[in-house]
């Protein structure tokens, strides 16, 4: 095999590269800005093992609709208003002192802080999730995106 060194013979494969054209400022932001450009904080964490009663009290007192359940800093689940409705409400007395781990949603869909803003919109509008934890590369929660936060981002870029 011979190695080409002449610049005349060299054909740059990137010569035909056409930079991506975006039609709007919002489209560019969705495609190029990181998901952390969307407001991802505040968010609330509780330790694995807290009781269902404590978790619901936290939802109520902080007026939030989801809690990230962590074990040693790593996300193990999410407990939301929907979990209360579907798994707890009709059996509250029975479950109140059980660990929240029994009724949380395990392994929720997550996005990473290195993902683009469009991933937040996709998780909510296409995959249909309302609370999407944002993790760093070590798997630790750094935020949460919600429909309201994504739509506020859209508004700011219209």
């Amino acid at each position: 095999m011979t190695k080409t060194t002449s610049t005349e013979e060299f054909k740059d494969p990137l010569k035909q590269y056409v930079p991506v054209q975006y039609a709007t400022r919002l489209e560019r932001s969705l495609a190029e800005e990181p998901i952390t450009a969307i407001q991802t904080q505040p968010f609330v964490e509780v330790e694995s093992g807290v009781t269902v009663r404590e978790a619901i009290r936290t939802l109520h007192s902080l007026k939030v609709s989801s809690l990230l359940v962590v074990d040693g800093g790593k996300l193990v689940g999410i407990f939301t208003e929907r979990d209360v409705l579907e798994r707890v409400a009709e059996r509250f007395e029975e479950l109140a002192d059980h660990p929240v781990d029994e009724v949380m949603t395990e392994n929720p869909l997550v996005v990473y802080e290195t993902d683009k803003a469009a991933a937040g919109l996709s998780a909510i509008a296409v995959a249909g999730y309302r609370h999407v934890p944002v993790l760093n590369v070590e798997g630790r929660p750094v935020g949460i995106v919600s429909p309201h936060r994504v739509l506020a981002f859209v508004k700011d870029h219209l």
Binding site: E27, A31, L109, V110, V111, D115, K116, A119, S122, A127
Partner: peptide
Amino acid sequence: QQVMVQRLG
């Protein structure tokens, strides 16, 4: 073109 190509999860 932005939303439908995301690699979620």
